[in-house]
Design a protein around this nucleic acid. Structure first.
Lengths: 352, 352
DNA sequence: TCTCCCTGCTTCATCGTTGAAGCAATCGCC
DNA sequence: GGCGATTGCTTCAACGATGAAGCAGGGAGA
């Protein structure tokens, strides 16, 4: 059949209306299935709309409805080295899955440039480009974020926030994760002297993972773990390895790294110096976004369900947009230990 | 100073106008820097706008201007196993970098659901959610894509398209890449019997990489390489390895895999069977999106500049949107060989 | 002194969509 | 057969922004 689709030139309600011989309002109502439009007319309108390739103009609808129907995923690019690509990717997959299911376009914003005294977070919401935002901010303290949350606009934060108790956030139980990691090294592998290579300590995840690690040590009656601060990058893992080698291991028998990238850097650096993981030193990482599975040995790690976080955050956001006050403003998802070779556990089957 | 920012409730031109005592039109003109508005009035308007936290409503502007100012990055989710996460991620980074620099929000669309006879690609453009789209479609033949390109809407394709000669696309020279990979194995490592583990052969990249591999073999006077078809997934690499082991290597001395994930699957499967890479068999992959660097041995590979592709595609798209006909509708970016351990080359320094 | 032009704003119209209210014609009911 | 209710559409207005055109008042030039 001849689909007389106009190859260019927008098709509006008016065009469809003219073809059918009714008014734009009638077309609008018919397409939304109003009972006030006759059955036969509705059919003719639907047919004409299909024929012409009519698609609702989002600007017109947004203007009228006072909502765009989109949501934004905001990742300040200042934190690109902190939020690894894979984390963001998993998050995005989760968010866009929920967005798609609701027919809501997902807008990615990495720009953080403030303009006329308004930061990028607020700009995107106030301009109504998006109705709500999911913000993955790295810093535990972020002035812009504070003002955004204070403004009352619909925002869901990724990651636990101590400084913004009123904010809705979805995170992972990093204290439990840190504790789980350290306890595994202590209980399963008899570690007595733990070194913790932390993330940047102005980052809540880094703080919590360290805290968990401390708690496990204390619970086992061990001394405070030695802490070497990194920044979540592989390079900082390498640097930590170098520091460790320079200072001497001093009886250390296990390393708990605050993420896998640093663990990987450590492993390479130690390996190059002839210190074998796990034979000479057990190692456990954190995240399991892909890297940990493919190294040799595989890096034992605490799995962060990033895609689930994304899905959950998006759900919470839609809840806010629908006017439902969330039952719990704070969601802490559980983590899971994935044992691979680096801690000393036997290498598991391949499909891990 | 008291920033009397209204915490909720939209601020419109009218609100600013009322404060200053002028009309909305005057405010609009002043903010855009029109010379028709007095200097002193302009100042007062700007001050008031800042004070009130005014941000242009994107729906209003889009409706008036007949353009949303956004661009879309479309990735059919049917192809998620084909387009690995990392590829998409690099693409996105490149696209959003250019988008940000132009102040254009980037919309991610993974939904491909057709509705009322209109596919998701066209829907997003015709609805004016985005002014143009960058489409990363997997299949060499995609009916929806054909109709989209035929519609003349501003679209840039990722990857060479043979079937759509009129489309604007940005890709990588995969034939050259495939040839480069095979030639390296032949010339540097004396390979005489090459096995090519291809991608899905309804995918242009897969076709081209295979073709390049064939060309190098022919040029060296070698017989046609044996081809085992995979689907770009690690699992299909494992399967290919299994096939190879079951059939017997039959004198094969090098494997050219069409991507790194399959190469990794192969390497693991062969390794588990006691066949060492590179000692028993040289291996080279393709992509270098992250995986190849961290395995042991590292996978030698053909680097695809995905971020650059994203940047370039976005630039081309903005060119189309600005009405500039592109100087060259087809962009083929060069690839680069990255030698690591898997082909038999000495392991390079760590920072590769 | 009259006209023309500039300056600096206002008024107007429009982009596309959609709820509300309006208004004929038809129907059901007593 | 008359009256209210229902059906099926129309007209109207508004969402917010912004070019175009309009229109006062003042200054310059002839």
């Amino acid at each position: 059949m001849a689909e007389a689709k106009p190859t260019s030139g927008r098709v509006t309600l008016r065009d469809v209306a003219d073809v059918v011989g009714v008014t734009p309002a009638a077309v609008s109502m018919a397409l939304r299935g109003s009972s006030r439009i006759g059955k036969e007319t509705t059919e003719r309108i639907r047919a004409a709309a299909r024929e012409l390739g009519y698609v609702t103009n989002s600007a017109g609808r947004a203007l009228r409805a006072q909502r765009s129907g989109s949501i934004a995923l905001v990742v300040p690019n200042t934190s690109q080295h902190v939020f690894g690509h894979s984390y963001f990717m998993h998050l995005l997959v989760g968010v866009s899955e929920v967005g798609d299911s609701r027919g809501a376009p997902v807008i990615i914003s990495t720009s953080v440039v403030a303009e006329h005294g308004i930061n990028a977070y607020e700009r995107i919401l106030r301009s109504q480009v998006a109705d709500g935002a999911i913000v993955a901010s790295a810093a535990a303290q972020d002035r812009d974020l504070e003002s955004l949350v204070a403004s009352g606009l619909p925002v869901v934060l990724i990651g636990r926030s101590v400084t913004l108790p009123d904010a809705v956030w979805v995170g992972v139980d990093d204290e439990a994760g840190g504790e789980l990691a350290a306890r595994h090294m202590i209980e399963q592998h008899g570690a007595r002297r733990i070194v913790h290579v932390s993330g940047p300590l102005d980052h809540q995840s880094a703080i919590d993972r360290l805290e968990g690690c401390r708690r496990a040590s204390a619970a086992a009656g061990l001394p405070e773990p030695r802490v070497i601060q990194g920044d979540f990058s592989e390079a900082s893992g390498v640097a930590a390895g170098r520091t460790l080698l320079a200072d001497g291991l001093d009886g250390a028998d296990a390393i708990v790294a605050a993420n896998d990238e640093m663990a990987y850097g450590l492993m390479r650096e130690l390996g190059a110096a002839g210190v074998s993981v796990p034979d000479d030193l057990g190692l456990i990482g954190y995240d399991d976004f892909g890297l940990a599975r493919v190294t040799t040995p595989g890096i034992s790690t605490i799995r962060v369900p990033a895609e689930l976080i994304g899905r959950r955050a998006a759900s919470e956001l839609f809840g806010l947009l629908d006017g439902r006050e969330p039952a719990h403003r704070h969601v802490l998802l559980p983590v899971e230990l994935i044992a691979r070779g680096s801690c000393g556990c036997p290498t598991p089957a391949q499909h891990d």
